[in-house]
Design a protein around this nucleic acid. Structure first.
Length: 509
RNA sequence: GCGCCGCUAGCUCAAUUGGCAGAGCAACUGACUCUUAAUCAGUAGGUUGAAGGUUCGAUUCCUUCGCGGCGCACCA
């Protein structure tokens, strides 16, 4: 039957409710229990009716038997069976007959156990809370189509209950992190999403337009430089769950907007931040999963500290079978070439090392670990390693082959920071769109003096993937980015018209 | 951006070499007062993602486009 016809039938029932003098979209209902509470209560129930209970939710199945009927009601806690009888409900049995799968109802009744043993509410009274005009997906196979699941996450959430669990886990993970940081004296802060300069990471930004100021603004790719300004201001320990935006490709581990936890601690270096990070993450994983040994795609990831600490120089040297610890560019280029990896022009020794690392080492980093000793040229915001000026005091956390976290002993020498920005500026001029922009105000802040500081960023979406055994970042973002359903051509057309209507500026790219 | 795969009823899926587009569930009608993928009898439901082409005839073959999935590339 066509969707139009199915919806027409439901609208007809809606009219019949109104004909009974009942408003099909109620204003309130007061449940006394959730379904899960009733199942727990019902464990003690035998045959005799117990106290009156009130429960509300969405009808997920109706099984009619003439003058009686069963239904399953789904609420935020789970399912409970309802039993309707004509001789028990009298006149209002008519209400039961007007119910459809998908309707929101509130019922009052008493608990009993059916002949087959299922804890059930014998309904004394039923109220319609909201009529569902649209038919639900099929009861047995459910809603599978990934496109529909992402576009209509509301339907995904009531058809696929494990999806609810994913987002509950995500929330437990972040609240555990907040509690951990709050308990250690960190202050949760909020910094600008709209930034006149973008910095703190290498990425292409989204550009937007402020009409009153007549200027372009960038959606932040990172909040790092703002948090460190707060350290300059003396807040000493700050954190923010930052929605960041990067105008890049999308795949299993990248969504254009994603969530990063960044935290900064005055007087700490990268070594101290490693200890903090592994304690923070291990505790949060334990809270989210109930264990520190979380299964991911068939492998057990053990988050129990301490995690191995691996030097990038050692790891790549081991992988290629000769030492590249001296970061000799000619040697690295030869090693890369021998593995069929063509160095892009302008790539320095550090870039080559990083590429070798990404291909040869990273996929094998299954268990959570720290990678340290990053080449200085890749890290304009970090301090050089004491006694080893070719690398910086930085770590990244990897697990299941995925990068989860990035941290350093923060650069607090304003002149060194200015030189690093200038170096980035030269790369920009050479065509590197992702090179960072000179931020004079940030340098000015450092000129007032920033204490030694350790800073960490953790990719919350990716960590959630690992904790929820999700293969795609789309599974852990409630509304992942998709192209519009109507199709791109139409949208482009509208956008063109709008741009054409504006005075004097094309779109910035 | 490139490659491969997919898009058929509200949902989940079929359809042989190109030959009348089907099933289950959901819906509707009837029977049924402890069912649970309820059961039984019946009914209805389609612009096969869109446009174009080849053909007597296209869900099927070709082209373009849209959306999605996977992989690669880009990307920390």
């Amino acid at each position: 039957m066509s969707l139009d016809e199915l919806m027409r039938q439901r609208r007809e029932k809606l009219a019949q409710w109104r004909a009974l003098g009942i408003e099909p979209y109620a204003y309130r209902f007061e449940p006394t229990h959730h379904a899960a509470d009733l199942l727990a209560l019902g464990a003690a129930v035998t045959e005799a009716p117990g106290e009156t209970v009130r429960v509300a939710g969405r009808l997920m199945a109706i099984r009619g038997h003439g003058k009686a009927g069963f239904a399953h009601l789904l609420d935020g806690s789970g399912r409970i069976q309802l039993y309707f009888r004509a001789d028990h409900l009298g006149e209002s049995f008519r209400r039961y007959e007007l119910l459809d799968v998908g309707d929101w109802v509130g019922v009052a009744g008493s608990l009993f156990r059916t002949r087959t043993g299922e804890i059930t509410v014998r309904v004394d009274a039923v109220e319609l809370l909201a009529k569902a005009l649209r038919p639900l997906p099929e009861k047995w196979h459910g809603l599978k189509d990934p496109e529909t699941r992402f576009r209509q996450r509301y339907a995904d959430l009531f058809m696929n209950l494990e999806v609810r669990e994913t987002f509950r886990r995500r929330a437990r993970l972040t609240s555990a992190m907040r509690e951990f940081l709050d308990a250690r004296g960190f202050l949760e802060v909020e910094t600008p999403v709209l930034q006149p300069l973008y910095g703190g990471a290498f990425a292409r930004p989204f550009v937007t337009r402020h009409h009153a100021l007549d200027m372009d603004l960038y959606l932040r790719i990172s909040n790092e430089l703002y948090l460190k300004r707060l350290i300059v201001g003396g807040l000493e320990r700050v954190y923010e769950f930052s929605r960041d935006f990067r105008n890049e490709g999308m795949d299993r581990s990248h969504n254009p907007e994603f969530t990063m936890l960044e935290f900064y601690q005055a007087f700490a270096d990268v070594h101290e931040m490693m200890d903090v990070t592994e304690a923070l993450i291990a505790g949060a994983v334990e809270r989210a999963c109930g264990t520190r040994q979380a299964t991911y795609q068939g492998q057990i990831l053990d988050w129990t500290p301490p995690w191995p600490r691996i030097s990038m120089l050692d790891a790549v040297s081991d992988a290629v079978g000769e030492s590249v610890r001296d970061l000799d560019r000619a040697r690295l280029e030869r090693v890369a070439a021998s593995r069929g990896m063509a160095a892009r022009p302008g790539t320095g020794a550090g870039g080559l090392l990083d590429e070798l690392f990404s291909v040869l080492v990273q996929p094998g980093l299954v268990r959570p670990c720290f990678v340290v000793d990053y080449p200085v040229e890749l890290s304009p915001l970090a301090r050089v390693k004491r006694g080893h000026p070719a690398v910086v005091e930085r770590f990244e956390v990897f697990a299941a082959g995925m990068e989860l976290s990035n941290a350093f002993s923060e650069q607090n020498d304003p002149e060194a920071q200015a030189r690093a920005f200038e170096d980035q500026g030269r790369r920009r001029e050479a065509g590197d769109e992702e090179a960072q922009q000179m931020d004079h105000d940030y340098v000015r802040a450092l000129e007032y003096g920033m204490p030694p500081t350790g800073g960490v960023g953790i990719g919350i979406d990716r960590l959630t993937m690992l904790v929820c055994d999700a293969r795609s970042i789309r599974d852990v973002i409630l509304f992942p980015q998709l192209r519009p359903e109507e199709g791109r051509a139409e949208i482009d057309h509208e956008a063109d018209e709008e741009t054409a209507g504006r005075a004097g500026r094309g779109s910035a790219t």
